[in-house]
C-alpha cells in the first residue's frame, strides 16, 4: 500500500512540472507587449518601464523562468498588480469559498448521481430507468451558469426563499453557509451528477450479472443488501476514478458559478484578473487549480486502492 502510494506520488511529479511550466508560459502567448496590454494605452513610457521591471520582463526568458521556479520553491507566486497584494495571500484568502463550493457540489453530484444510476440499473429498461437517464442527460446538457441565473430568479426573486448571492463562512453561521451554498453547489453539481449517474448505471449493469451477486442471493441476502453492499461496492470502483476528473470540471465550473452568485472565491479572483489582465494572478490561479486537481486525483487513486483489495495487494 505504501509503495503504491509512493509510486503514484512520483508519477505525479513530471505532470506538476509541466503544469507549472504551462502556467508560466501563458504570458508568452500574449501577442505584442504584455506591459502595454496590462497598463492600457494611456500609460506613459515611465509607467511602462516600471511595470516591466516589476514583472521581470526586462530579463531574458530563461532568467524569467528560473526566477519563477526559484520563487515558487519558496512558496512565492508573485505580486498582484492590481490588488497590491501577494498572489499567494490573495488566493489563500479566497480558497475556502471555492473549496467549499467545489466539494459540496462534488458530494451532491456523487450522492445523487450514484443513486440515480443504481435506480436506473435495478429498473433497467423500465420507466424509472428512462426517467433517471433522461434526467442525467438533461443535467449535463444545460449550461450551468444560465441555470444559476434561472434559479436565482426563481428561488430568490420570485419565491424569496434564498439569498441572491454572497457567502457566509461555515465557522460563522453554518445555517447561513448552507443557505448560501445550496443554489450554487446544486447548480454546479448538475452536470457531473449526470455523468456519475451514467457511469454508475453502466457499472451496476455489469456487476449485477456477476456470479458473486448470484452467490449473495443464494445466501438469502435481501435485495437491498445484494444491491447496496455486494453490487455497489464493486460498481463504485470505476465510478470513483471519475470523481477526480469530475472535481477538475467542477473547479472550472466554479469559476463562472462564483461570478453568477457573487461568491468571493478564487474563480472570481481569476475572472477579475483576466478581465483586467493581471497576469501574475492568472498564472498563480492556473497553477493552483491544476495542482489541486493533481492532488485530488492522487487522493482518488489511494481511495481506489482502499476500495479494491486487488490493487492494495499489488495484483492487477
Amino acid at each position: 500500500m505504501l509503495r503504491y502510494a509512493a509510486g503514484r506520488l512520483v508519477s505525479a511529479l513530471p505532470v506538476l512540472l509541466i503544469v507549472s511550466l504551462l502556467s508560466f508560459g501563458i504570458v508568452w502567448i500574449v501577442p505584442g507587449d504584455v506591459a502595454v496590454e496590462m497598463a492600457g494605452p494611456t500609460a506613459t513610457a515611465e509607467e511602462l518601464a516600471r511595470l516591466r521591471e516589476r514583472l521581470g520582463l526586462t530579463k531574458p526568458w530563461h532568467e524569467q523562468l528560473i526566477g519563477w521556479y526559484g520563487a515558487l520553491l519558496q512558496g512565492d507566486l508573485g505580486e498582484s498588480i492590481l490588488l497590491r497584494q501577494g498572489v499567494g495571500a490573495a488566493i489563500v484568502e479566497r480558497l475556502p469559498v471555492t473549496l467549499s463550493l467545489t466539494f459540496t457540489a462534488l458530494l451532491i453530484a456523487f450522492v445523487c448521481g450514484t443513486a440515480l444510476g443504481v435506480l436506473a440499473a435495478v429498473r433497467a429498461g423500465k420507466a424509472a430507468d428512462r426517467a433517471a437517464m433522461g434526467t442525467a442527460l438533461i443535467g449535463f446538457s444545460l449550461p450551468d451558469f444560465w441555470l444559476g441565473l434561472v434559479f436565482v430568479y426563481l428561488f430568490a426573486v420570485v419565491l424569496g426563499w434564498l439569498p441572491t448571492g454572497g457567502y457566509v463562512p461555515f465557522t460563522q453561521d453554518p445555517l447561513g453557509w448552507a443557505q448560501a451554498m445550496i443554489l450554487p453547489a446544486g447548480t454546479l453539481a448538475l452536470s457531473q451528477m449526470g455523468l456519475f449517474a451514467r457511469m454508475t448505471r453502466a457499472a451496476m449493469l455489469e456487476v449485477l450479472r456477476q456470479d458473486y451477486v448470484r452467490t449473495a442471493r443464494a445466501k438469502g441476502m435481501p435485495g437491498w443488501i445484494v444491491v447496496g453492499k455486494h453490487a455497489l461496492r464493486n460498481a463504485l470502483i470505476p465510478v470513483v476514478t471519475v470523481a477526480g476528473i469530475a472535481c477538475g470540471v467542477l473547479l472550472g465550473g466554479a469559476v463562472v458559478i462564483e461570478s453568477v452568485f457573487s461568491l468571493p472565491g478564487v474563480g472570481r479572483l481569476i475572472v477579475g484578473a483576466i478581465q483586467r489582465r493581471d497576469y501574475p494572478v492568472i498564472q498563480g490561479g492556473l497553477l493552483l487549480t491544476a495542482t489541486i486537481f493533481v492532488l485530488v486525483n492522487l487522493a482518488v487513486d489511494l481511495l481506489y486502492a482502499a476500495l479494491d483489495p486487488r490493487i492494495r495487494h499489488g495484483r492487477r
Partner: peptide
C-alpha cells in the same frame, strides 16, 4: 498536464491572453 487545468478555466485564460 493539459488535462490538469479545468478545460473551461484554461480556455478562458487562453482566450483572454
Amino acid at each position: 498536464a493539459l488535462m490538469a487545468f479545468p478545460a473551461v478555466l484554461l480556455a478562458i485564460a487562453l482566450a483572454a491572453a
